[in-house]
């Protein structure tokens, strides 16, 4: 307990200047013949944020925003090209395998597809027990069995389900199994990469509720990645908005929905269908997401931004404090963007 208290001040996760560059060049011979240079894709561009213990930070963005790439780097499935990730004050990337195993016990991930995330040839009990066994959390087979039963119960499945194979379950039940696996090594931090986007709405509600209950019960910290703002609103304490690999705004969740600052955030909010039928007309959004291999100059959002001017086309915006958080926008910095009428 004292260790926790001592570290309460430090955020659980600190990400600074994280970038990820992919080489998307054509094969060497094609480049030689077609006289094309190497091509690089900056999937994640100088992203920094913190996650405090027990909170849920959500990252929202559309396709190509780099949100899944960030998730992969955080859990060590992908090496960052630049930048650092500190987990509880310790660097995430270490070459000492003992230290790495200790770190790995503390974080886990829930994946998008409940169909691809469970090995179809493994029994459910083996799937759930794997992290426990591999990370050496539990060695005695009777205890492992007991823990698997307990985890199945925790996600509202029965102990008898352990001896079945994944294909015998529906999508929602499979996602419960995936959650049980993620909890198996008793982690503190869970990265959730679009955990409900492959599920139907009524099942999505079950899974989101379950994830919130587990957070309260076990004191989990979540990084929640989604493209769906209404889901994010339901889950997150704080929200970061990504556009073309860069964070454009971070803000407290309620504030973001009440008073979005960055024009892209406003546009995203405008695009959410109006289910209350309040008669609010969705604003027509201009254009589509540009090709990330050739991003626009300056602020990458400028071709679609109604407030863009010469400076936006030229200069990459830096972080500006706003009333609700931080945003990367020249317009916000110069206070030339009108107050929003987002009062809901």
């Amino acid at each position: 307990m004292s260790k926790v208290a001592a570290k309460a001040a430090t955020p659980l996760l600190q990400v600074s200047d994280l970038s990820c560059v992919f080489d998307v060049s054509k094969p060497w011979l094609n480049r030689l013949i077609e006289r094309e240079p190497k091509q690089f894709l900056r999937a994640v561009d100088n992203v920094s944020f913190e996650i405090r213990k027990g909170e849920t930070l959500a990252l929202v963005g559309e396709s190509g925003s780099g949100k899944s790439t960030i998730a992969k780097m955080l859990v060590g499935l992908l090496d960052p090209s630049e930048g650092t990730i500190l987990f509880d004050g310790e660097p995430m990337i270490t070459h000492s395998s003992d230290r790495m195993t200790e770190l790995r016990k503390r974080f886990q991930m829930i994946f998008q597809s409940p169909y691809a995330s469970l090995n179809p040839r493994w029994k459910v009990a083996d799937v759930i027990a794997e992290p426990m066994i591999v990370l050496g959390v539990e060695k005695d087979s009777a205890k492992i069995q007991a823990r698997v039963d307990e985890l199945l119960d925790l996600v509202s499945l029965s102990a008898a389900d352990g001896s079945k194979f994944p294909h015998e379950f529906s999508g929602g039940q499979r996602q419960r199994i995936a959650i049980a696996r993620a909890l198996s090594s008793s982690p503190e931090f869970i990265v959730c990469d679009e955990p409900t986007s492959a599920l139907d709405v009524s099942v999505q509600a079950q899974i989101l509720n379950l994830m919130r209950d587990l957070q309260d019960q076990l004191g989990l910290t979540y990084l929640f990645i989604s493209h769906d703002l209404s889901v994010v609103r339901h889950m997150a304490n704080r929200i970061g908005v990504l556009y073309l690999g860069a964070l454009v705004e971070i803000s407290d969740s309620k504030e973001l929905f009440r008073a979005p600052q960055h024009p892209y955030t406003r546009m995203l909010l405008d695009a959410v269908p109006d289910l209350e039928m309040t008669g609010r007309k969705r604003k027509e959004v201009e254009g589509e997401i540009p090709n990330p291999i050739n991003p626009p100059s300056g602020c990458t959002f400028h071709p679609r931004c109604p407030f863009a001017n010469e400076r936006c086309r030229r200069e990459v915006p830096r972080w500006t404090r706003t009333k609700t958080g931080v945003a990367a926008c020249h317009g916000v910095e110069e206070s030339r963007i009108p107050e929003t009428e987002m009062a809901r």
Binding site: V201, S202, A205, N209, S230, H234, F257, L269, V272
Partner: peptide, 20 residues
């Protein structure tokens, strides 16, 4: 009830037990 909306302030979504 199970569709999360922007206006909603409640913590829990209405959930239908089970699946189709």
């Amino acid at each position: 009830g199970s569709i999360p909306t922007l206006a909603q302030e409640e913590d829990r979504l209405v959930q239908i037990p089970g699946s189709m």
